[in-house]
Amino acid sequence: MSRIQTCFQQLAGKKALIPYITAGDPHPQHTLAYMHALVAGGADIIELGVPFSDPMADGPVIQKACERALAAGTRLRDVLAIVHEFRQHNQTTPIVLMGYLNPIEAMGYADFTQAAAQAGVDGVLTVDLPPEEAQAVQPLFTAAGLDMIYLIAPTTSDERICKIAASGQGYLYYVSLKGVTGSAALDVEAVAAKMQTLRQLTSLPIAVGFGIRDATSAAQVAQVADGVIVGSALVNQIADLQSTPEAISDALQTTLAAMRQAMDAR
């Protein structure tokens, strides 16, 4: 069983809290500490962003995080090294790499899947790799024990949801709104309605992301989804504190702990 499957099975009625940060933001030397802080704050899974020069699906907050991380020299191989480091002290929290296809394509699929598995990566979410285009490479990911995590959007048809669910592993990432990361607040009722549809079409756990910015919205989403993904709200904190990077761990942990508490409170 994959570490992600185990994670969802052991939640025992609670919902998964899934924070996202961009690896290497503001500098790769701090990312490891931030990851441990996220776990201490109550993270069940960490989505670790791989910086890319052209993050087309991201809003300004994560665009700037990518720019900072790249300026500090962070590349895909550095991100894998950080995960490897993390695994020396944590063997249970699943790590999902999230980013764009080109850095993986440049490294080569065989090299990447091997190196990622060896480093201790559990899943890969590539924003610009829909299942149709993934067919040729998915066997390499599966052979390496890496879960392919796919997105479902508000615009995805039922027919497509079935197709994506059939290819997806680990969990499905439901994008709660049309737009880029860090956009307007989400519509909880619309998400709840979509969840009902999704439940009928797939048995995979469903995590919801985009538009979750505080403990209140995290708790609301936790009532209808299996997992709550929070990204831009955390990356914003990193941006605010970038001149004092050692203060960031505490800030991330505090923010996440408040979300954890609100999610578990009911």
């Binding site: 699906a57 610009d128 829909p130 285009e133 796919y150 997105l151 959007a153 615009t155 994008v175 737009g179």
Partner: peptide, 12 residues
């Protein structure tokens, strides 16, 4: 070629 886009655009 192909269609390497985020899911929201697939339907469009």
């Amino acid at each position: 070629g192909g269609r390497f886009v985020s899911e929201t655009l697939s339907y469009a």
